[in-house]
Design a binder for these strands. Structure first.
Lengths: 235, 235
DNA sequence: ACCTGAACACCGTTCAAGT
DNA sequence: ACCTGAACACCGTTCAAGT
């Protein structure tokens, strides 16, 4: 018996030497499934199937589904650039950063939901984003003991807005049902006697909490104006 | 054969004539499971089991799990009383109402999560709460086109805060892990060189978004102060 | 060490069959 | 009409066995 021939080199091009799962490919696959088919489609089984393997294989690279979620959030948030803080312009910078963060969180539906569920951000990308926001706040003249609270609440508001906004544009067709209900509730309000829910009726506002971009920007303006007032007291 | 004897009257006390499932008992059962064992325990199967029946039986009284969630939220929110709007006191009234709503949403862990997921409130209790908040805002002198935005964003913020806060006190032991991670991240920040995440390091703040009651109250004060400034412009 | 895939202990929802 | 419970089509996670 001869020694077996070495495999001809062109075979190597056909399939990579070994399938080689990595955390990165898992996260990328999860993100592409998410943006293509929405949050419900992001299951361990589905991701594994996409990578031609069984669900158990993923657990060699990722602790559990929650950790995978955090890694997805991190990858998504890495695209946000934080500006060099400029004491002359902190108000504009802060607002721009919030709008940008909200934009990224809304862009891929489902990411904001993960952000909302992730109680403590421990992942580099998110820490960088937080640090950037604090950097702007710290050159605003706001007393130090307020800065943590301000950053905290601003981040919360951005995340919450992005979450609600993304519910409206999920690719799962859930948003159609939402629009239908919005109409129904308008009719319902009109049908009520004048003394029931008079304010909702008067505004004819179905009150979807916080999904209008205008409302979000208004809230940012009001909040930042309030912060500036705090800064003026103790410059 | 004689006609069968009528059942002796004391038997009736032993078991109710017929099991009779109602929407109300289902919602009540769901709420008590929720407050006893947290959101994960609230499954259709579990509720059915609690009522000595199969999961399919619930679907005669409730369309699906989402609808059950909304009914639970409604029942929980019904305890919030909205004050008679007083133009002299709208700032205090507004703050009190927000604190009260947040308190109720935080009280039963899991309710805030439902509130966050419920895109459009269509249920009487929530509509009443919204109407009350709008009532206070309408006697504040804030221009009408801002009132919807203000109410919208305030409700969003209350809900989001309650959601994050309730993550910390879930009975599923998830909160212990959260506290552990909070410590770990503090250590991690200290271990970093001075030029990495300088602001987070300086504040030594792990930045759990929006869970401190102080921070929430601060945000309400800042936001309401900002609204008042708007009201002063056009009285 | 990494990967497999069968198995475990669950889900929400549907539906024919019963009373 | 209301209820049943078996069945369907899924989950996340674990783990012995393979390479």
């Amino acid at each position: 018996m001869n020694a077996p021939l070495p495999p001809p080199p062109w075979r190597r091009a056909t399939r990579t030497p070994r399938r080689q799962l990595t955390t990165e490919t898992i996260v990328d696959t999860a993100l592409s499934v998410l943006s293509a088919e929405g949050p419900d489609a992001v299951t361990m089984r589905r991701i594994a199937h996409e990578l031609d393997t069984g669900p158990g294989s993923l657990y060699a690279h990722v602790q559990d589904k929650r950790e995978l979620h955090e890694l997805m959030l991190d990858a998504a948030m890495r695209v946000v650039e934080t500006p060099e803080p400029d004491p002359q312009n902190w108000r504009t910078q802060l607002k721009q950063l919030c709008l940008e963060q909200a934009r990224v969180l809304t862009e891929t539906p489902g990411i904001a939901q993960i952000a909302m569920e992730t109680l403590i951000p421990t992942t580099p990308g998110i820490l960088v984003a937080m640090d950037g926001m604090l950097g702007i706040l710290r050159c605003s003249g706001i007393p130090d003991d307020r800065i943590a609270a301000a950053g905290d609440m601003l981040a919360l508001h951005v995340t919450a807005y992005a979450y609600e906004a993304s519910l409206w544009q999920s690719p799962s067709g859930q948003s159609d049902e939402a629009h239908r209900r919005l109409g129904q509730i308008g009719d319902y309000l009109q049908s009520l006697p004048a003394d029931q829910l008079p304010n909702l009726k008067a505004m004819n506002h179905a009150m979807p909490h916080g999904t209008e971009p205008d409302h979000f920007e208004f809230a940012l303006d009001v909040f930042i104006a309030g912060l500036a007032a705090h800064a003026d007291v103790r410059p």
